[in-house]
């Protein structure tokens, strides 16, 4: 997995609460058996004026001029600023894949849905939870100042504003560790293969019906 240490980038908004993963990447694009190719269809129903499909080339589709991420000033945004409960609904990992390919490296919101939050870490994207009032303030500053950029420092667990002010955020130790190092989590878990085997052996004695499925 790609590591995340520090990132400085332009901030772009999705200024609404409860953005669900259907909105991040609509279902018709989930028919792909690959991990890539979702970027051009991130936020498809908000971003374009017509209905997208996997068969349809995205070049030349009419862009929605009302959608902020289409504005000139947010082109190249790599830090997404949004509202509470971002990523709710479907567990589709295609959502972080699409956001990653779009160019987002970090997402700032007052809260995230659990499965999406978890999926971000598996893909080198850092979801950052900041209090409501701070998020409100960041929205105000971003709207007021074109080219508004933030620096995210995972090691220090801070978001640094253009003024130099540092906003602290929490992150689980194990998630931080994996992301900083870009660890292959399966490889890390398999170091405990002996423990897994020992657990299984014990369970086979106490709950044998769990181990003869389909027999």
């Amino acid at each position: 997995m790609r590591a995340f240490t520090q990132h400085t980038g332009l901030v772009g908004p999705i200024d609404r609460a409860n953005v669900d993963t259907d909105l991040i990447i609509p279902k018709q694009f989930l028919k792909s058996i690959k991990r890539s190719g979702f970027g051009p269809n991130a936020f498809d129903e908000l971003r374009y004026l017509d209905e997208g499909s996997p068969e349809k080339p995205n070049d030349g589709r009419p862009l929605n001029p009302q959608f902020p991420l289409n504005f000139e000033r947010y082109q190249g945004a790599s830090i997404l600023l949004t509202r509470k409960n971002f990523g709710c609904g479907s567990s589709r990992e295609h959502a972080p894949w699409a956001l990653d390919e779009y160019g987002f490296r970090a997402i700032i919101a007052p809260s995230f849905a659990d499965i999406f939050f978890n999926n971000c870490f598996k893909n080198g994207i850092l979801p950052i939870v900041l209090p409501d009032d701070i998020v409100e303030q960041l929205f105000a500053e971003m709207y007021a100042q074109e080219g508004y950029r933030l620096t995210v420092d995972l090691e220090r667990q801070v978001v640094v504003k253009p003024s130099g002010e540092a906003l602290a955020f929490e992150v689980d130790e194990f998630r931080k560790h994996c992301l900083l190092n870009g660890f292959d989590e399966i490889g890390v878990t398999l170091r405990d293969a002996d423990k897994i085997t020992a657990y299984e052996q014990a369970r086979k004695k106490t709950a044998p019906w769990l181990f003869n499925f389909g027999a």
Partner: peptide
């Protein structure tokens, strides 16, 4: 519980989830 595709792969490979 519902999981993402990376976790599907993780469970296939290790029979475990890393969770809090």
């Amino acid at each position: 519980i519902g999981i993402g595709t990376s976790e599907v792969e993780h469970v296939l490979a290790t029979q475990c989830l890393v969770a809090k």
